[in-house]
Every structure is written in C-alpha cells, then in structure tokens.
Design a protein around this nucleic acid. Sequence first.
DNA 1: AACCATTTTTTAAATCATCATTCAATTTTT
DNA 2: AAAAATTGAATGATGATTTAAAAAATGGTT
Lengths: 192, 192
Amino acid sequence: MGRKRIRDIRHEEFVEATITAVHERGYGVVTMAEIAREAGSSAASINYYFGSKEGLMEATMRHLLRLLRTAMIEGYSQASTPRDRLLAVMDANFSDSLYSVEKCSIWMQFWANAPYSPRLSRLHRINRSRVRSHFTAELRRLVPQPQVETARTALQSYMDGVWLQAAQSDAPLDPAAAREAAHQVVDLVLPR
Amino acid sequence: MGRKRIRDIRHEEFVEATITAVHERGYGVVTMAEIAREAGSSAASINYYFGSKEGLMEATMRHLLRLLRTAMIEGYSQASTPRDRLLAVMDANFSDSLYSVEKCSIWMQFWANAPYSPRLSRLHRINRSRVRSHFTAELRRLVPQPQVETARTALQSYMDGVWLQAAQSDAPLDPAAAREAAHQVVDLVLPR
DNA sequence: AACCATTTTTTAAATCATCATTCAATTTTT
DNA sequence: AAAAATTGAATGATGATTTAAAAAATGGTT
C-alpha cells in the first residue's frame, strides 16, 4: 500500500512548489534551490524524483493539463445541448481551480518556452488540438458552415488572450466574473 | 553630423540581432555572446551601448512598440469611419512588418517576462492601455453602450490570442490572411 | 594633404557570481 | 537487514559585467 504513496506525495508537493516558485520568480530565472526551499526540501531530492529541471517542468505542465482536462470532462458530462457544451469548454478554462493569477502566469511561461522545448511543445500541441476539436464539434451545430472556423478562432483566441492578460494582473482574479464575461462573448458571436 | 550616426546604427544593429537571437534561442536562454555574434560584434560592446542585458531588452521592446505605434498611426490617419478606424487598429497588429513568427515570438517572450521586470511591465501597460482606448473610442459609436466593454475585450483578447498562436507556428505567417480573418471576426462581433 | 590631440568605439581577458547536477554518506522506511 | 529517501558538499559549466588597453574616427591646424 505505502509503496507508491511517498513517491506520489512528493511528486505533488514538488509540482505545487514549482507552480508557486515559477509564479514568483519567473520560469527562466527560478532555481532548483528556490523550488526546493518552497517545498521544504533539497535540490538533490528533486533530481532524485524528476531526473532534471526539465523533467520537473514537464511534470508540472502535465499536472496543469490534467486539471484542465478534468474540469472540461466534468462540465461536459453535465451539458446536454451544443450550446451548453460549448459553454462548458469555456467554463473549464475559467474554472475556480485554474483561473488564478498564479496558474495563468505559469501557463504563460510554459507557453512562451514551448517553442524551445520539444517536450513542452508536444504537450502544448496536444492540448490545443483537443480544445479545437471540442469547439469545432459544437459550433458545427450552432453556426452556418462557412462561419464555423471564424467563430472557433474568435472564441479560442479570446480564451487565450484573457489568460494572457490574467497573467499580468496584480490583483486576484474573479473566475465567476470571467465565466460571465465569456458567456457574453459567446452571445455576441453566436447568431441569436 | 556623424556624431550621432554610429551610435544610432549600432543601436539598430544590436536590436535587430536581439530579435533574431531571442527568437532562435528563447529570452531566458539567449546569451550576450550569442546576440553579439549575431550582430558581428562583441558582448562588451553591447554593454557599452546599453549598459546591461536588461537595457538591451528594454530597447528592443521599445523598438517593437514603435513599429506598432507607427503602423497604427498610419492606418488610423487614412480611415474616416469608426468602423474603418477599428479595422485600422486591428490591421496594424497584423501588418506585414509586425505579424511574423519572429516578431510574435519575441513579443510573447517579453509578455511572459514582463511581470518580473518593472521596465518591461511599464512599457507593456502603456501599450495595452493605448490600444484599449482606441478600441473603446470607436466601439462607443458602433455598439450599444452595455456591450462596449464586452466587444472590446472580445476583440482585444482575440488579437492577443492570435499572436500567442502565431508565436508557436512552425510555418511562415500570412499577414493578409490574418487581417482578413480579423475582419470576419469584427463582422461577427458587430451588429450588422 | 599630413599631423597631432582628443574623443569614441572595440574587444580580449579577467572577475565574479550563479546553478544544475552528481556523489558519497546518512537517515528513514519497509 | 535491505531498500528507499534525503541532503551537504563537491563538481563542472556557464555567462554577465568590468577593466584595461588598443584601434578607429574626428576636428582643428598647418
């Protein structure tokens, strides 16, 4: 029973510490020692578990992607109409567990660094194309064929842009308000 | 006459080299030596002109902001209706001189790093609020009052999101197509 | 044109600091 | 007792910045 426990607990602790530390110091500047201190541990331990700094970063991004996927699946399962499913995808992006300055900020860091790390860029591509196919599937039933692509990029880029801004914010975010705003954008974009 | 010339020429050379080098290697990883090599010079020279690496980065961002402002002013001056002025702001963001993988990529890097550098974050804020006020001014005349704010964030975030994506692209961009797509998004958002 | 004095520009090398990673030894858990 | 986890202290690199000295441009004077 306990065989896997410690390993998993440490994993999670280090990933959480990474999120905090990267948010505070920046992806390019944060050191192993800082992350370790944040986790109440030592840099050597991180290497013991993750092999390298890059391995840790990849694990952290996987963690965030998992959060997003979970939020998305949950919302999706409760929605019955195409419109509700569309809103569910957006709501997932602005869910309480994801839409915080800390998370948006680290997400942005990963995003900016993805082009220089094959591991990150792969994760990034996979995530993006999943969101795209969700959007496209619902929009096909909501807008005339020639506008599907325009509506999709409008909405998907909107989400990206809002996160980009959120990362710059110096005040705490309001996820509920962000969802409300997103709904209004959907209203604006979809034919009524 | 020649007193200022050399200084200006070097400035520009180093800034161009910075754009190329940051695009190729990433903001957090690029070294002074790499930038210097790209410019056919030495790292010490960069410090002579810019004082520090951060100074160089700030100058580079200023350069990009100047490009954006120039493109915007030019388009603006030729537009006569609110709608045309709105489109002009968008077109400036997707102008041939700005909408390239290289430029979007470095822009993204600055964006991600702004929260950790007061100098960058200041520039960033100024630019953003200029774009916002342009948008708001035109939208006031194009959509009912209660929707102005929604339409503005929809469009402004759209632009941000498209740049974010562009930075990840591994193929050359098509600025004309991006402008066309942006126009369609405007059509979607504005009441017809 | 040629000459010198002054200023500006350039860079190689030295300095100084930082960090990821590894290793060897210890502690904790099973 | 064996395996897993932990860490302090090397190790080995890297890289921004400074310095000191050289090279190039400039301007004034014949």
